[in-house]
Design a protein around this nucleic acid. Structure first.
Lengths: 219, 219
DNA sequence: CATTTATTCAATTATTCAATAGAGTATTTG
DNA sequence: CAAATACTCTATTGAATAATTGAATAAATG
């Protein structure tokens, strides 16, 4: 094989890889990936949750789909998108690299005045006598949650505070390290005299680490 | 926190993530990443190996650098770039997703008429009585290689065929699953009556899997 | 079978990106 | 300190992308 043929082959091959890179090159598309990492959704739901127009969300979803990052299925008039195999690992690698290498990310997270007592993956195993709250929207809890976690969407938390025990520490988790639901939950709980911390990670990270995931509404 | 404030925060955060996506959105930059996954290099070396002008290569390297994917150090008039922590995992996730999800990639690989007997990571452990050849350029071998592998750059292989034993199977590896050096080596070896196969993966994949890596020129 | 709902397509505009050429900046060497 | 080497910056060009709007599909409903 001549040099020019090799060059042509490499150009073609890496251009295919770059299709995935291009799909990752937009903030809205990354936000869509993060949402879809939690649970599948229709175009309209995704548009609403990302504050995009439906047409625009649809376009972005198609870019992700063509790059092999999403799978879709039709159900009546709805089209549900979900992550393709391997897409979460890619998003996770990107997210983690950004956290390590980009100073502005740290700066943004610092602006949340987040508690630095967040619990890492391995630490959670060792904790006993805690109440674990999944503060994501219900549909994400149903799609999968950490065993023993109670569904307590952040919007319902304040109303349902009285059912929580003050004798135990309360641990909240949400979508991932950059999701603020758990921070809001911890702040609210503490302001009402509870002892509370957040997990530093989300359900998909838990799942990727090989831990068991429970689906549906727990008995 | 109001909805509009949350939206602003998310837009800023995901825009930072998208900086990395944008860095991955070009075939030349991905090729640079793959090369740097093997060993650090100067701008000029990278330009030559990717058939880019030096100015253009420099620009692309700076894009990668600003996105946190590369680190650089000066040595005299040379600037050496190397992968930042976590950058190889990101490139590997992207590459593996492309292999699984993009049909054109499979099509391109098929055009190589590659032998499908390639040896996977776990299989290599079980093989005995083989001669393992690292057919990448010498500098990459020096930067790190699989223990017991012999450096045999593909351009030297034909000249040095006589030192190889016919009694053992010969196994060649190179940069990764899409590198053709090992395919060329296998083809050449077989045409000279050797029994030969390639590894399906490269040195960085071996290293990422937690196996030991030897540096320098083996004693 | 017309209407409604959910999604996609097509056309437009503003913005961003890739590549090039040539000038400019560090650093080493004679 | 002048020349050589290695790299970076700037300006320009043409190409690609993002968001918007309104029209066009596909499937379900009355």
């Amino acid at each position: 094989m001549k040099h020019s043929q090799k060059r042509q082959f490499k150009d073609k091959l890496y251009s295919q890889f770059a299709r995935i890179g291009k799909a990752l090159a937009n903030n809205h598309r990354l936000e869509l990936l993060e949402l879809l990492g939690q649970a599948e959704r229709s175009v309209e739901m995704l548009a609403r949750e990302t504050d995009l127009s439906v047409a625009n969300a649809s376009q972005h979803l198609q870019v992700l789909h063509k790059a092999g990052l999403l799978q879709s299925r039709r159900e009546g008039t709805f089209i549900f998108y979900q992550l393709a195999d391997g897409a979460f690992l890619l998003w996770q690698s990107l997210r983690d690299l950004a956290q390590k290498q980009i100073a502005e990310v740290e700066h943004l997270v610092a602006s949340l005045k987040r508690d630095d007592q967040a619990i890492e993956l391995k630490e959670l195993q060792l904790l006993e006598d805690i109440v674990l709250l999944d503060v994501r929207p219900m549909n994400e809890y149903v799609a999968g949650h950490i065993p023993k976690a109670i569904s307590m969407p952040i919007i319902e938390l304040e109303m349902r505070l009285e059912i929580l025990p003050k004798a135990f520490e309360i641990v909240a988790y949400c979508r991932g390290p950059f999701c603020v639901f758990a921070d809001e939950a911890v702040a609210l709980l503490r302001s009402h005299g509870f002892q509370a911390r957040r997990l530093a990670f989300g359900l998909p990270d838990w799942q990727m680490a090989g831990y068991p995931v429970q689906k549906g509404v727990g008995a």
